[in-house]
Amino acid sequence: MLAPVRTGAALTELENEIGVPGAGMDRLRLMPTPFVPEVRLHLAEDAIVWWARMEASAGNALPAPYWASAWAGGQALARHLLDHPELVAGRRVLDLATGSGLVAIAAALAGAERVEANDIDPYALAAATVNARANGVTVVTSSGDLLDAPRPAADLLVAGDVFYTPAMTARMLAFLDRISAAGVEVLVGDPGRGELPPHRLSVVASYSVPTTEPFVDSPVRRVQVLRGG
């Protein structure tokens, strides 16, 4: 069973991890993102090894560190925002399921008026905070599941790698339909895991993205950026 962790405590843990010198597969390192080198992230050499060490240190189960890898969908979406800053310039942007904060940081670098990074994992919010700091941008974080919440206070919602199970895909599509109808523009990055129904969203760009996440056989994935509504 996962022990509850507050965002402040998770932030302190990550700051301590970052502040300790050393190298190895169980360490976090600040590095350029492969497909988005303008953005530097604190990533794990091996997220599974890092996770095992942190759980052993804590003496209890911790959330899987999805934020410690640069997932392909997020990389493609971040690249798209930086290459097309007119999509975010002067707008309020919400990065749903932010993970490392990569897409949120790209939106801030591209000139967004306000960027909010949301996730249910306090460690992801802590990672988004330290990564935004490392890139010299301001990102506001918020916790909790927004999929049943009212229309977000945003002009543009961005989300990478969110269609990973049938149940989550169904919830996510219903949410995206609802907020699109309410006037929020939607952009998502999807690496083709097979959960998103064909032609459900409109393709606006396609990229070949280097993979860094665990358990992926190919070093490159074809990723689509899609528009909702």
Results as ranks from 00 to 15, higher is better:
A104T: 06
G183C: 11
V204W: 02
T7C: 11
A56K: 10
V36W: 03
A61V: 05
E185D: 15
G183Q: 06
D217L: 13
G144K: 08
S202D: 14
Q75W: 11
L187R: 06
D95K: 11
E113N: 00
L81Q: 04
L226R: 12
A70H: 04
G19F: 08
G229P: 03
P197T: 14
D148V: 01
Q224D: 13
E13Y: 01
A128S: 02
V209M: 05
A205M: 10
A104R: 08
A181G: 09
L41Q: 11
A134F: 08
F35D: 10
N131K: 02
V88C: 07
L14K: 00
P198T: 07
A106K: 12
A205L: 11
S143Y: 04
L187V: 07
P21G: 14
V49R: 13
R6E: 14
G8P: 01
V186G: 03
G22A: 11
V139K: 10
R178C: 00
A23L: 07
S208T: 13
G136W: 08
E213R: 04
T212C: 03
W71S: 03
L146M: 13
V140L: 12
R114C: 10
P85F: 13
V209W: 05
D83R: 12
V20I: 15
R53K: 14
A170G: 01
S180I: 09
S202Q: 15
L176G: 10
G8R: 13
W67Q: 03
T129R: 15
V158A: 12
P191K: 04
G19W: 06
A149P: 10
R114I: 00
V209E: 05
L173W: 13
D190C: 02
T141P: 00
V186Q: 06
V39Y: 05
M54V: 04
P150K: 09
A112P: 01
A70P: 03
I120S: 07
A58I: 08
L102F: 09
